[in-house]
Design a protein around this nucleic acid. Structure first.
Lengths: 321, 321
DNA sequence: CACGGCTCTCGACAAAAGTCAAATTTGAAT
DNA sequence: ATTCAAATTTGACTTTTGTCGAGAGCCGTG
């Protein structure tokens, strides 16, 4: 009886405890094990996603500001993390909220596209586990060599792991040195299939990158700070799924973009729910660009950013309720 | 500060505790209230469905028997509550399982049809609360006058309450004394709309009734025991949403059925997910009839019933793995 | 304006859950 | 067959959580 506790026992314990509402010692009796074991099983059940504890994110959408933003930016839904309040670290709050929202948007059987970045990885990292068997998580863009934890493949894998889902990785570099090579690689069946499968996604999760020397593209060596600055002068406004967009949210016509292996903007727009999460206030303009380009239908931001967006949108018919 | 704790506070407390993982005393500090209050808010949050604790019902479908039943009966999914084990009362286990399954099947924005009966009411009664705002629960059939708690309207209302959803009740008797009156009533705009709206449902929840003197139809005075016995001789095999079906799951051609105000079988079949829950072993034949009539796509039963169903289905290619 | 009735709040106690190091068992490799 | 490392279980302890009755603020009513 001291063999493999297996899913079986964990499941039974979780069932009796959470579904039937027995106490831990009652569960222990039923299953003929010690209460300590039950406690352990229950922790495992929570960690595995066999039991799911989720809190409604309603409050954050019900917010007046959120509603106004939805109207102003023509988005399906907006969640605003109140920054002043509660927690020490506001950006954590945004990530926690984003993780909840994400889990709320996922359905069984979904196909999910995941981009990369510190924000996305933070979300993956704090996201609780869930037991979504038929879910597939696909990587939206090629990889970077850098050993950062927020690399595209890491983000994809981690989220897949949390969801008990299949992770479909993308075994190609994000950027190549010549356009020809990129073109050739994109034509490769393995890569082509992956790229083609992106528009079949039901949900996408990404953030937006700024066009400056702090960008991950620079940190990871895909571009030099100087090249970045040059692109900026040419109209680069943001980075999404490794690609550079202009202020209208269109793909910037530049060599870099032609050397990238990533989900085309059209494929991204074909995804029904596009969840964008922005933590840093500095990403105001990149975010505007992404919204302009219709790359985002669901948005999670902090209160401060929300206010700036609203102000920018030209205070559409102030209504004091 | 001793005013309306409102949803606001409950929500904040739940958020900090469940999403951020703070301890109750930490939450109490953040919100400047006593820990006791926090504990209370958290209970309310759980009771309201602001936080959702659900346990995966996977184990009960992963069961070998469940899989075989799915194949044998051509159902989308089957859940089997292990009867021998765990609990004192097996029928409670079935209801708890059914409630979990039900909540797993509901999506935001869904329209849900609910029939009636002791089983359905039991499920409603133990079902945990959820925060599904855009859900509508519609009553599938007319009412009975009897003061039982499991009347159609009670079932509908209770489930709507648990889901924080709108309940659409059906203000007509289940059975009338003449066919003409029934016909007339069915033509009434209010009633007609309700009936017409049933096929738009995404999910239905019902059980199946036996054709005997214990039937609720008899207890509630819709039929006498003698009439029931007569119907049985005429081929009645089960009762679904107040209507009598034969062994093939077709509507029995009888005066009673013509006097009933209820969702037509065709409307029921038009509902994508039809969740049938059967607690009593005695409902074997009625269940067969319902399955034969395609009135059920998702099934929750006890282990004993499952075994009987499998045996009946003629042991399709025994495979020992 | 005083009076219940109401709900919300808090302190203190009881109950339940979480944790840890030691003991036991398992499975595999020597 | 024996040994060892890893995994599992447990009892004892600590921390956290649930609950109760008393008290405090609010509101409509007489």
């Amino acid at each position: 009886m001291a063999i493999r506790p297996a899913e079986q026992l964990i499941h039974k314990a979780a069932w009796l405890y959470y579904a039937h509402g027995l106490r831990q010692d009652e569960v222990a009796n039923q299953l003929n094990i010690s209460r300590a074991s039950v406690a352990m099983y229950l922790r495992k059940a929570r960690e595995t996603g066999i039991v799911n504890i989720s809190t409604s994110t309603q409050l954050f959408t019900d917010d007046v500001m959120a509603r106004r933003l939805e109207d102003a930016l023509k988005l399906d839904a907006v969640w605003i993390a109140p920054e002043n309040a509660y927690l020490a670290d506001p950006s954590t709050d945004i990530a926690v909220l984003a993780a909840s929202v994400f889990l709320e948007l996922v359905r069984k059987g979904d196909r999910i596209g995941v981009a990369w970045g510190r924000t996305v990885y933070t979300i993956a990292d704090i996201m609780s586990y869930a037991d979504l068997q038929d879910v597939t998580v696909v990587q939206l863009c090629g990889n970077l060599g850098a050993p950062y934890s927020y690399r595209p493949d890491q983000c994809t894998m981690e989220i897949a792991r949390r969801l008990n889902a299949k992770g479909l990785n993308f075994y190609a570099p994000l950027v190549l040195s010549t356009e020809e090579l990129a073109q050739g690689l994109r034509a490769e069946p393995v890569i082509r299939d992956q790229l083609a499968g992106i528009s079949d996604c039901d949900l996408a999760l990404y953030s937006i990158g700024a066009v400056d020397a702090d960008s991950h593209l620079v940190k990871c060596g895909a571009l030099t700070a100087a090249e970045m600055a040059a692109l900026r002068r040419e109209g680069a406004a943001g980075v999404i799924a490794g690609q550079i967009i202009d202020a209208d949210g269109a793909l910037l016509d530049c060599s870099y973009n032609r050397r990238v292996i990533s989900a085309g903007l059209a494929s991204l727009r074909a995804i029904e729910k596009r969840l964008m999460v922005v933590q840093e206030d500095s990403k105001f303009e990149p975010l505007l660009a992404a919204v302009a380009g219709g790359l985002c239908t669901h948005l999670v931001v902090g209160a401060h950013m929300a206010q700036r967006l609203l102000d920018h949108a030209g205070a559409p018919a102030e209504k004091a309720s």
